[in-house]
Design a protein around this nucleic acid. Structure first.
Length: 211
DNA sequence: TATTGGATCGCC
DNA sequence: GCGATCCAATAG
């Protein structure tokens, strides 16, 4: 057991709480004896069948079935003909929800991740959800991995912290009323925001009603 | 079986 | 700002 590794109980809580608290945590992915990963700086929450932007909004399908299962497992899907999206399943079995990983500050395996991405600048490695998956080399082949296991997991970093902002989620046609995207402001590893998202962004004030 | 559009990215 | 690209979901 690695010290400070996030447990299944961490992911089994309300998705907004998991999303906010995942910020600053360090993702570790080990492949072929190499360690890749870094600090998470941007996430989005997708919560239940009533969330029109959630893949579960039209019920269970072969693609999203894992969201209905136990928390702490990796949900990966392919979109736009090019990109894999990485999510961590949250909440209880039977309730479909997940946190989308959208931005990471590279810390481990930087040269490998640069090569995976075909870029040289650090801030180009994982400043977006598709970039992040490509940098780590994760595809639907890794769908269903246990994120509390040996190959992929998060660790708590005592140095993490800082102001958190919230905004609408990016790239949606529906569900923009919810400010379920969370990120560190002015961080170079956060993905690009449209004018609309920028205009709606605000500092997160933690209240009981958020959860 | 055909059609549609997407939790994006990179280049114009 | 826009086109690439291909799969999942839905409709017929």
């Amino acid at each position: 057991m690695k010290p400070n590794k996030l447990s299944r109980e961490f992911y089994s809580r309300p998705t907004l709480q998991v999303a906010v608290e995942l910020l600053g945590k360090i993702l570790i992915y080990e492949i072929e004896g190499i360690r890749l990963g870094g600090r998470l700086v941007e996430v989005e929450a997708y919560i239940g069948e009533d969330d029109p932007a959630c893949h579960a909004c039209r019920g269970q399908t072969p693609r999203n079935a894992i969201m209905y299962g136990d928390p702490g497992y990796l949900y990966v899907y392919f979109t736009y003909g090019n990109h894999y999206m990485l999510n961590i399943v949250t909440e209880r079995k039977g309730f479909p929800a997940a946190v989308l990983l959208r931005g990471m500050e590279p810390m481990y395996g930087i040269d490998i991740m640069k090569k995976n991405r075909g870029v040289d600048k650090i801030a180009e490695i994982a400043s977006g959800p598709g970039k992040m998956a490509r940098a780590l080399g994760i595809t639907t082949a890794q769908k269903g991995l246990d994120v509390t296991g040996e190959q992929i997991y998060f660790i708590n970093d005592r140095e993490a912290g800082g102001e958190v902002w919230q905004s609408p989620r990016i790239g949606l046609s529906d569900g923009r009323d919810k400010l379920w995207r969370f990120y560190y402001p002015n961080n170079p590893h956060v993905s690009r925001m449209s004018a609309y998202v920028k205009a709606e962004a605000r500092k997160l004030v933690l209240t009981a009603s958020l959860y």
